[in-house]
């Protein structure tokens, strides 16, 4: 029974992915991609990876969807030249099939991995959720560098702003019709999203959730509020915005350096203070992730292109 469910789910995932690649029209492709992200999140839940399912639904389908839809709308308004129609490409098809077959072969040829036993080490971290323990303790380097990668991407996006726009508010100007759907949801959703996002961060210590999932929900709240005109978009030079962007990596880095000063390894947290220290790092990371993701999605400051 469960195999039939998985087969049907994987069939659906492949169909919508195929629709996103070969379907006609960019808009259709984007919509298929959002559906794909949601179906994939169900797939992750079937694999027992609930934290990944949350991240995929919130980031893969949600934020990436907003990003692509906004970009599609902007490209259409710029009335750019349409992309030339292309027929099937045998070379590309051969390459794609070859890589897929090689991966399939690897699955059967490689030995089954043996998972490291986290159960013995997990109490040292003070975390009940092994994924959070891995993210903030055993692979803290990855997470620290990831938060810095987000900043680097944001710098790249901001560098695309034109000089005349630099001091303008971030993103496009949105005008929500008073009493319209966007304006109403802009007031209805933020309190719900704020509670849910904060809960995800708090619950991530012992159950499903975490700084990245919670931060993404909070980023979505910020986006909805900005699009509905409830929250004015920040400016690049604003001190508060810059502080929010760096507080997460900053606190994380400082805690790592503090450990070095106390004679332990870089990014090592002693078990006695592991839980409170992790919570402080997580909260700081959540603030930075939420703000960075939101301003990444709204894009560089752009004053000349009003949106209705």
């Amino acid at each position: 029974m469960s195999l039939a469910l998985d087969l049907a789910l994987c069939g659906l995932i492949l169909c919508v992915a195929l629709g996103a690649v070969v379907g006609r029209g960019v808009f259709r492709s984007v919509i298929f991609f959002i559906t794909y992200g949601l179906l994939l999140a169900i797939g992750w839940a079937r694999l027992g990876a609930k934290d990944v399912a949350l991240a995929e639904a919130a980031i893969g389908a949600g934020l990436t969807g907003v990003l692509l839809l906004t970009a599609h709308g902007r490209l259409r308004r710029m009335s750019v030249e349409r992309a030339p129609r292309v027929g099937p490409n045998p070379m590309a098809a051969t390459t794609g099939i070859a890589v897929a077959l090689a991966l399939g072969w690897a699955w059967f040829a490689l030995p089954a991995p043996t998972a490291p036993d986290l159960a013995a080490a997990l109490p040292l971290t003070g975390m009940g959720n092994p994924v959070t323990g891995v993210l903030l303790h055993f692979r803290a380097w990855d997470t620290l560098l990831e938060s810095i990668v987000l900043l680097a991407a944001l710098l790249g996006v901001w560098m695309l702003a034109r000089d005349v726009d630099w001091h303008a508010p971030l993103g496009l100007r949105y005008h929500a019709r008073p009493g319209g759907v966007l304006a109403s949801f802009g007031r209805l959703l933020p309190p719900i999203g704020l509670s849910f996002g904060s809960y995800l961060v708090w619950a991530g210590a012992d159950g499903t959730g975490g700084a990245f999932q919670g931060g993404t929900v909070l980023a979505a709240v910020v986006l909805v509020a900005m699009m509905a005109g409830v929250l004015p978009p920040p400016r690049v030079a604003q001190g508060g915005l810059r502080a929010a962007l760096v507080v997460g990596p900053g606190v994380f880095l400082l805690s790592g350096l503090l450990a070095v000063a106390l004679g332990m390894g870089f990014l090592t947290l002693p078990p006695a203070v592991a839980k409170p220290a992790t919570l402080i790092i997580e909260v700081a990371l959540t603030v930075s992730i939420a703000v960075t993701l939101a301003v990444l999605v709204i894009g560089p400051p752009d004053d000349k292109e009003p949106v209705r």
Partner: peptide, 28 residues
Amino acid sequence: VDAVPQALIITGIVVALAASALAVGLVV
């Protein structure tokens, strides 16, 4: 179920969004 790949995947999903945002910015 191994938690290490799951943590790597969450990291990867976030980095993929950052890369997509930069790519979309370049396209626009």
